[in-house]
Design a protein around this nucleic acid. Structure first.
Lengths: 343, 343
DNA sequence: GCTTAGCACTCGCCTTTCGGGAGTGCTAAC
DNA sequence: GTTAGCACTCCCGAAAGGCGAGTGCTAAGC
């Protein structure tokens, strides 16, 4: 990533063009810049600089008699070197903070609400990859008989995520047996991370499995199964319609492409799960996913106890309000991390 | 609802116009009908009949030199009296049946998948109002200590719906106390419908509440709270993008209106929850919700043990494949009822 | 008396045409 | 290196015109 390879005046003009285009969605001409931004330069000078910037690949012209817009490379330079640091407004800060102060809800609704607030503040579609169970720790495991033939297995993690499954039994089981199995499972599992289950815990349990009847085996299988099902973390979405406010999606086709991406959990998952590195911006064709190649994606990871567990992100047109979105995403990720860690 | 008020030939022409318009989305002219449907009538005759139908309010013209399209009243007559009964194809039947044969998943995913299959078969956006808890029966209630200060309350219904909440305690509680409370709750609640809780059960429990310590009170409050939160049933959605395949939504504005409706749980809830009467079709402005007034909504209720518990529906343009959608919605509602009742 | 052929007429839609305007690149002067 | 001037390009929106689908009416036919 080449920074500072342009001289200051070219940088200034690239910045002004990008800022203006982000705001107006219209190609920016030399005259507009001279009039609007008072750079102390004549349109002709600006034209010369813009021609150079175009030659360097930072700007492009939709057609010969239009103004310039940033190219993908231009956005990249802007994001890396020119973008202003944008502080969140007092209202925004208050909104986010006050939202995370309410601790009474269950985790799923908190996550859903977090995406909603992200979409609301950025006015772009927002995505979240729910917390992975990998670093999660068993807090409680229990078998509960629902009827003669149905057994409920309950798994609670330290983060408050609760999984439950029902197993149908071949034959009735005595409460005492269940309690014993629950007791052993808890003794072995409590405090252990999920990730150890398949590797080490399973081995340790082998003898107990032998010693006990089929229930134990079933319970263990169910835990395994649950861990695997939950391996693909849930994806949360909100504010998809926001994308319709932007002229680049006025043609239904463009919108449909994106909408299809949004309905494909698998693709979203791929898009988000590869992003384990703090705040990340990918612009246009830097995105692998074809449907997102006219978009930019800004993501940040959130953590529990210092360990990355998930990702939140915002998807918008390449002509996106980078500065603002970066601040919002970053701050919300941070607050969410604090929140989850405090549970 | 006036049926059979048109003479047979007018009915025939209304039916043909409607069928053709549903298929082609283009206004239908007299010539087209004469050529395509071989009614043994000349275009001129058909024109006369169409003029009569227009006068009667069954057809309308988008503009004077275009063909006719059905009016809302025309669709209504079509739906009430003319619509052919459409059998599902063998593939469709197999798909639905095979889907409901797999009994291993949890209820939430079953409901989500049901909407998905509905959207897939109809090619319209599909909605479901999740089963109400009103007629649900307590199957199991239990308090489980997670740590010194956290208590999990678990409520299982006969339909396999599982609710859980965590309460923070002021002070530690002995396992014995918890077991006793769980025992009493189960004894009192098992087999009783949720709806009795607030009215009669609560009264019966009053003495126990007094006799026991604060836990009991807390648990009861939490159950109350859970029942109330779950009072608004969950809404499931799928296939919203399908709407983009239809020319009436090519303008982004139209689509946006509908999309906003889809994001407003409250409105969807109102739209669906008022439909306790088997299969129902509402056309255009028969819908209360403004955003749906260029749409038709076809819904059916599903039942558990003979009692209506929820609604599934399909939303499409008024120019909708009524016959096909009716069959699909009806059949899926029926299969879903059987499925849920068998749990 | 209903049905139909003929015909004039209407009107949306598509294509073409045609300025106007915004913006450029080049050149020459400062 | 900067800037004024100017010719040139080309998108865009409005206006114009022709096409075609479809109609309603009239008068003749069965």
């Amino acid at each position: 990533m080449s920074r500072r390879e342009l001289d200051p005046r070219k940088e200034l003009i690239l910045k002004v063009v990008t800022d203006d285009y982000i705001e107006s969605a219209e190609p920016v001409g030399s005259r507009t810049i001279a009039r609007k931004y008072n750079l102390g330069l004549s349109p002709a000078t600006i034209r010369n600089e813009m021609a150079d910037l175009e030659e360097g690949g930072y700007l492009k012209q939709p057609h010969v008699s239009a103004g310039r817009i940033p190219s993908q490379q231009g956005y990249r330079y802007y994001v890396d070197a020119l973008m202003p640091q944008k502080e969140l407004t007092e209202e925004e800060l208050t909104l986010i903070r006050s939202y995370f102060e309410d601790r009474s809800r269950e985790i799923d609704s908190i996550l859903q609400q977090t995406v909603k607030i992200l979409a609301q503040l950025t006015r772009y579609p927002s995505i979240m990859l729910g917390p992975t169970l990998k670093p999660a720790v068993f807090k409680h495991v229990q078998l509960i008989p629902l009827s003669a033939r149905d057994l409920l297995i309950l798994i609670v993690t330290d983060m408050g995520i609760i999984e439950n499954r029902v197993i149908a039994l071949d034959s009735p089981v005595a409460q005492g047996d269940l309690d014993r199995v629950s007791y052993i499972l808890n003794k072995r599992l409590r405090g252990r991370p999920f990730i150890d289950f398949k590797s080490s815990v399973l081995r340790e349990l082998r003898e107990e499995i032998k010693a006990n009847n089929g229930i134990f085996q079933k319970a263990v299988n169910l835990i395994l199964n649950t861990l695997e099902t939950r391996d693909k973390e849930r994806i949360y979405l909100d504010g998809i319609i926001n994308i319709l406010d932007h002229p680049e999606f006025k043609q239904v086709e463009k919108f449909k492409l994106l909408m299809e991406l949004m309905e494909e959990e698998e693709k979203l998952y791929r898009l988000l799960s590869s992003r384990q590195q703090g705040l990340k911006i990918s612009i246009g064709e830097e995105n692998q996913e074809e449907a997102a190649q006219e978009c930019s994606l800004i993501t940040a990871n959130y953590e529990v106890g210092g360990q990355v567990v998930g990702t939140i992100g915002v998807l918008g047109p390449t002509r996106m309000e980078y500065a603002h979105v970066v601040s919002v995403v970053d701050y919300i990720a941070q607050k969410l991390s604090e929140f989850l860690s405090s549970l």
